Computed example of a mutant assay.
Amino acid sequence: MTIDQDIVQAFAPTGKLRASINLGNPILAHRTPDGSAGGVSVDLATALAARLGVPLELVVVETAGKSVEIVAAEDADVGFFAIDPKRGASIAFTAPYVLIEGYYLVRQDSPVQSNADVDRAGTRVVVGKGSAYDLFLTRELKHADIVHAPSSQTVVKTFLASQYDVAAGVKQQLEADIAGMTGLRLLGERFMVIQQAMGVQKTRGDKAAAFLAQFVEDMKGSGRVTDALRDHGIQGATVAPLA
């Protein structure tokens, strides 16, 4: 495939595609045994660099907020994000490629039995600072108090250490963090569907945004996203429908 050189320049002005990889979402990225980054987002970044015909450089970060920050500042060329209107001020998102779920975690003896019970005065909900569910719950919860953990990976630790009322997060992350523990339970319904997409700084132009959007559709339609989820053993996430 012949790629317009204006597109290549838009995505790789340094001669390399610098892809921001957020390790804070274990569904999409993780550390491999040799210490490098791997996962669904790395596979997609590799495919995008190959399509552009440029080398790939991974810019690995620990939180979603940091990933947004470096792409917005153009210290990375492309990133992998949950779609959110606040982030959309500077970043052009594709349609989602993966859908995952946000859930609440409480103690076994908590009076909180359903999602509707969470948004009450005096309830303290722990979230990962700058995460998609932090942004969402900050808008949606009218009575409960938001407490910020440093990252999604530290939500359960913060929740347990300070006797807060509810922990919020990606279902799979919460399940992994409480594996082997007793006295805790997830509520029986999701509070949001998190739409995971790719994004590029809006200053890179409409053509770049359209190219990235088509790339994501190609990855879904060709089965590459399905293959990546399978290859990395990801359960509980679904491939988003074609836009």
Rank of each mutant, 00 (worst) to 15 (best):
D6Y: 03
I7P: 06
V8K: 03
A12P: 07
P13V: 06
L17I: 03
R18N: 06
S20E: 08
I21N: 01
N22Y: 04
L23P: 02
G24A: 07
N25S: 13
H30M: 15
D34S: 14
A37R: 06
D43S: 15
L44S: 09
A45P: 05
A45N: 08
T46K: 13
A47T: 09
L48K: 13
A49P: 05
E57P: 13
E57Q: 15
E57D: 15
L58I: 03
L58G: 07
V59S: 12
T63L: 13
K66R: 14
E74H: 03
E74Q: 09
V78G: 04
G79D: 04
F80P: 00
A82V: 02
R87D: 03
A92D: 08
F93L: 08
T94P: 00
Y97G: 01
I100Q: 02
I100S: 14
I100K: 07
E101D: 09
G102Y: 01
Y103K: 07
Y104F: 13
Y104K: 10
L105D: 04
V106H: 02
R107P: 08
D119V: 15
D119H: 01
R120W: 03
R120I: 08
A121P: 15
G122K: 15
T123H: 09
V126G: 12
V126T: 10
K129S: 15
G130W: 13
S131M: 07
A132D: 11
Y133A: 09
Y133L: 12
Y133M: 11
Y133N: 12
L137S: 13
L141G: 14
D145S: 12
I146K: 09
H148T: 15
V155N: 04
T158F: 13
F159Q: 04
F159D: 03
A161L: 12
Q163W: 08
A168M: 12
G169Q: 11
K171H: 09
E175Y: 05
A176M: 09
I178P: 02
A179T: 01
A179R: 07
G183W: 02
L184C: 01
R190E: 08
R190D: 05
Q195M: 10
Q201H: 10
Q201V: 09
K202E: 03
R204G: 02
F211W: 10
A213R: 00
F215D: 06
V216L: 01
M219L: 07
G221P: 05
G223Q: 08
T226W: 01
A228T: 07
I234C: 09
I234Q: 08
G236K: 04
G236E: 08
L242H: 01
